[in-house]
Amino acid sequence: MMEIVLNNTPEYLNTNKASITVSELLSIKNFSFKLLVVKINGTLVKKDNYGVATIKSGDKVQVIHLISGG
């Protein structure tokens, strides 16, 4: 189990790994939206880096789904 803070809420991820990538997080959480803003510990992660940016226990992660309207 890995414990992170996802969108200001404690989240327990069912994984044996010491760290996971953003892509793996999105897959675990079933986040299939296209337009996302992702931050790890306050630092922006762009889509090109979803496969390499890693998340470990204790990290604060934000995944914000952007939708049209304004």
């Binding site: 337009l35 996302l36 922006l44 762009k46 914000i64 952007l66 049209s68 304004g70």
Partner: peptide, 30 residues
């Protein structure tokens, strides 16, 4: 305060990357 989600994402990425400490306020879902 744009309407298009792709532009919201672009604005968010540009500001959070270039000015990470500048407060940025999004409108998302109304």
């Amino acid at each position: 305060a744009v309407d298009n989600a792709e532009m919201k994402k672009l604005i968010t990425e540009v500001f959070q990357e270039k000015y990470p400490n500048m407060p940025l306020i999004l409108g998302n879902g109304m």
